[in-house]
């Protein structure tokens, strides 16, 4: 079970940040070729991310690249270069319908074939950043086997909605719910939007608590200092860990007895509880709270 509590945005044309963003240990490093790169620098950023990904070791941290859309003059070259650079994930910006995903997938497959990479090596993430995208979240989420998750991008969305970001995030309530439901139907990750006021630690933590409670798997972050804060919110409590460990022990016991029914304290443990227990332990391990050796 791969955790994606934090996806760290790294401007694709910043040599200093591209070279070792993994030291902050986000769950995913995401190099950006899109909004953080000016039109005049698209080529330079593409070469920089390409060379860096091919050369440097990110020490097991998952890598992603946000490409430019296929409706721009840069999208195809981005795919040509990035499939060759082999990040784990390509993230599609401003996805509005299932076709947007399959178009990118077709391009990726073409390059994979050309360079002899097994088809399906490069995984996908789709960002939903428009009202149409939000309404089509379900078809987008179910559009491709490569798709690992969908991510809400709220900066443009609130403008389209004729509102702005607020502290409690009431304006995003519908979009967040929609994205989350779509991801759950498809069985993929749901990632929340960035919080751009990097000075406001309290506001940031409040928002992370909110999206965790809603059910999101994680959040896009723009500042390395935000990573620890997210991971802290996602660290399970001792009580949660204790309970999860007991559930897992009950599973093992049932397995050793060859029993199909898992019981704990005289009550049946069903599938969602088992999954939640695994997820809790995975989070706990990533937070360094439970020894790695604990078996699932």
């Amino acid at each position: 079970m791969k955790l994606r509590r934090t996806m760290l945005y790294v401007p694709g044309n910043s040599a200093a940040m591209v070279k070792d963003a993994h030291i902050y240990r986000p769950d995913t490093v995401m190099f950006d070729l899109e909004d953080s790169v000016s039109y005049r620098e698209k080529d330079a950023a593409r070469f920089l991310v390409y060379q860096t990904l091919r050369t440097l070791d990110y020490e097991g941290v998952e890598t992603a690249v946000r490409i430019n859309g296929l409706d721009t003059p840069y999208g195809r070259d981005d795919i040509e270069a990035m499939v060759r650079a082999r990040p784990n994930i390509i993230r599609i910006p401003k996805t509005e319908k299932a076709q947007d995903v399959t178009d990118v997938e077709t391009e990726i497959e073409r390059v994979e074939r050309k360079i002899g990479l097994p088809i399906g090596t490069i995984k996908l993430f789709a960002a939903i950043e428009t009202p149409l995208g939000v309404l089509n979240a379900r078809e987008i989420a179910c559009s491709s086997n490569r798709l690992l998750g969908i991510a809400l991008g709220a900066e443009d969305l609130v403008t389209s909605l004729r509102t702005s970001r607020s502290k409690d995030g009431i304006e995003l309530h519908y979009a967040r719910s929609q994205v989350l439901y779509a991801a759950r139907i498809a069985g993929i990750n749901a990632i929340d939007t960035v919080y751009s006021n990097v000075q406001d630690e309290e506001g940031f933590i409040a928002e992370v608590r909110l999206i965790k409670q809603l059910g999101f798997d994680g959040k896009s972050v723009i500042q390395p200092n935000q990573i620890k804060l997210v991971h802290r919110v996602y660290t399970p409590t001792e009580e949660e860990i204790h309970k999860a460990l007991r559930v897992l022990a009950a599973i093992r016991e049932a397995e050793s007895k060859g029993s199909g029914v898992i019981a704990l304290d005289g009550r049946m443990v069903d599938k969602p509880i088992v999954e939640r227990a695994r997820w809790t332990i995975e989070l706990a391990k990533a937070s360094g709270v439970v020894p790695e050796e604990v078996k699932l």
Binding site: I23, Y24, Q223, P224, N225, K228
Partner: peptide
């Protein structure tokens, strides 16, 4: 400092 690298090392 607000430099994330220095904060990382310090923590």
């Amino acid at each position: 400092t607000r430099d994330p690298r220095e904060l990382l090392i310090a923590e």
